[in-house]
Amino acid sequence: MKRFLIPLGIFIVLVIFLGIGLKLNPREVPSPLIGKPAPDFKLALLSDPSRQMSPADLRGKVWLFNVWASWCGSCRQEHDLLLGLARQGIVPIYGMDYKDQPGDARAVLTRFGNPYVETVIDPDGRTGMNYGVYGVPETYLIDKTGIIRYKHTGPLTQEILDKKILPLAKELQQ
């Protein structure tokens, strides 16, 4: 009798895993960059292409790095949320305009409002590649020493912001 119960046992384990699997998202890829220094770049600013910015300029600050583009529809979904966050002023948001025409990007910011302290331009997506960007929008939380602490892929939601990003940002600011 006992050995005939083995298939049932294996099956029960399988069902438990499949049940857990229902809650997971197979498309969400965790970034290997978490806990590692934010990759360096020196990119022109959208507001004034003659000036450049690099992550080193933000040492000592906790900041959000939001990768977006004018052609990206789901970036519009999180835009209002970002504007609200910028108004609260808890954590500064820096943007990166990914594989885009600067003119189009400026038009979007003029039309919908600008939540970013500054936006850097990544026209060929090379910096995006270093950050492991695979689907805009993506958002990184970077601490005072320039280490990436959190990454969210896809449009931000109020829930993610309230439960994950803001508590972590506040903790890192202390």
Partner: peptide, 22 residues
């Protein structure tokens, strides 16, 4: 839908394997 099929799966296969063991 996934949850429903999983429960159905568990019921059909689980009871069959139990019957098999018995």
């Amino acid at each position: 839908r996934g949850l429903f099929i999983l429960m159905f799966l568990a019921a059909v296969i689980g009871s069959s394997l139990l019957l098999f063991a018995m």
